[in-house]
């Protein structure tokens, strides 16, 4: 606990919708230790975005915290006033978003946007500009001083994502939340950005919560991984354990679907048949049961327990720990 910069305990987030209560996150536990990089994987609709929005408390107006709490650096985030929370955003907690083409305001220069976010710092405009230039140099933007006068549309997607990283790390935050920062970029850029992020993380010493559905990137960058499915954490553990001996059938299926794991030439890429359950009417028992290849009777009626497999690996499955999932 003391070593965690971020600790999410038993958190449930519900949305009130015309159809009823949508339980987007249910009893989620995630902790991010100081100075570590934690990965979160899961397919679209698994609650990754809600998780991030909850941490920076920028949830949609129809969302509410149904249970649990988030502790960041010793503070209960949902207990803070709006102003206190805003004080943390961009200083202690920073974010890099998925789509670099939408991250920046199109009618303001990059320089203006980079100096604006330093509004809390008691520095002259020259000092703020210098800091922006230094940061752009660190993420590898050539001729940064001149480029500060340019507008977002004059940069490529990769450049814009570097700028987003520069902005997020400029205040030397304690926690960086990276929401699929490389999904919108091509593969060569992805490697460059990941490398740069790793270097900067080591330099600043911040923790990173890295959200991705690219398993290769998670394996490369993170020490621990959290696998999410339909609003629940289904498996959690060190990257080595989870990737080499996955305990939850969903994790296993996810790994099999990763194109990086496919060795033979095939016409049909593997998929997980079926769809994510309707989060307004969640089936009794295990949420993954309708799609699970190893489903048996109890899965449809009983909720699985959060089971400890070994030190640092847990899974939410009736079969977890009982036998190796084949």
């Amino acid at each position: 606990m003391e070593n965690d910069i971020l600790n999410i305990r038993d958190m449930s987030i519900h949305y009130s919708t015309p159809r009823g209560t949508l339980k987007a996150l249910r009893h989620v536990n995630v902790s991010v230790p100081k100075g570590k990089i934690i990965g979160v994987v899961g397919e679209s609709g698994c609650g990754k975005s809600t998780l991030i929005s909850a941490i920076i408390r920028l949830l949609a107006p129809n969302a509410n915290l149904a249970s649990g709490a988030i502790t960041f650096d010793g503070k209960d985030l949902f207990g803070l006033s709006e102003d206190e929370m805003r004080g943390l955003r961009g200083t202690d907690i920073s974010m890099v978003f998925q789509d670099p083409m939408q991250t920046h305001n199109p009618v303001l220069t990059i320089g203006r946007q980079m100096t604006d976010i330093q509004y809390r710092d008691d520095m002259t405009m020259e000092q703020k500009t210098k800091r922006a230039v230094d940061m752009l140099t660190q993420v590898g933007i050539p001729d940064p001083a001149a480029r500060l006068n340019q507008f977002p549309h004059e940069f490529s997607g990769g450049m814009r994502q570097r700028i987003a990283i520069a902005m997020a790390l400029m205040a030397r935050p304690k926690l960086l939340i990276a929401d699929e920062p490389t999904t919108a970029l091509d593969a060569t850029l992805e490697v460059q950005i990941i490398k740069r992020l790793e270097e900067l993380q080591a330099d600043i010493g911040c923790s990173i919560l890295f959200i991705s559905h690219h398993l290769g990137v998670i394996a490369e960058l993170c020490e621990e991984v959290v696998v999410m499915y339909a609003g629940e954490v289904v498996e959690q553990g060190s990257v080595r354990e989870v990737f080499h001996s996955p305990q939850h059938p969903y994790t296993k299926a996810l790994l099999e679907c990763d194109p990086g794991h496919i060795k033979e030439k095939t016409r049909n890429l593997p998929t997980i048949p079926g769809e994510i359950p309707d989060l307004v009417n969640i089936p009794a028992g295990c949420a993954f049961a309708p799609r699970c290849p190893r489903v048996f009777d109890a899965c449809h009626t009983q909720r699985p327990e959060w089971t400890r497999i070994k030190e640092g690996q847990h899974a939410l499955c009736h079969l977890a720990g009982k036998e190796a999932v084949q």
Binding site: L58, L88, G90, S94, D99, Q102, T103
Partner: peptide
């Protein structure tokens, strides 16, 4: 509702600032 407003909020810019200097200009 656009991404850049979300970014501005995530950096803790004051809401008035986001409304009148960032969003209104567009």
């Amino acid at each position: 509702g656009e991404g850049h407003v979300r970014t501005a909020r995530a950096f803790g810019l004051p809401e008035n600032w986001i409304t009148y200097r960032y969003a209104l200009k567009l």
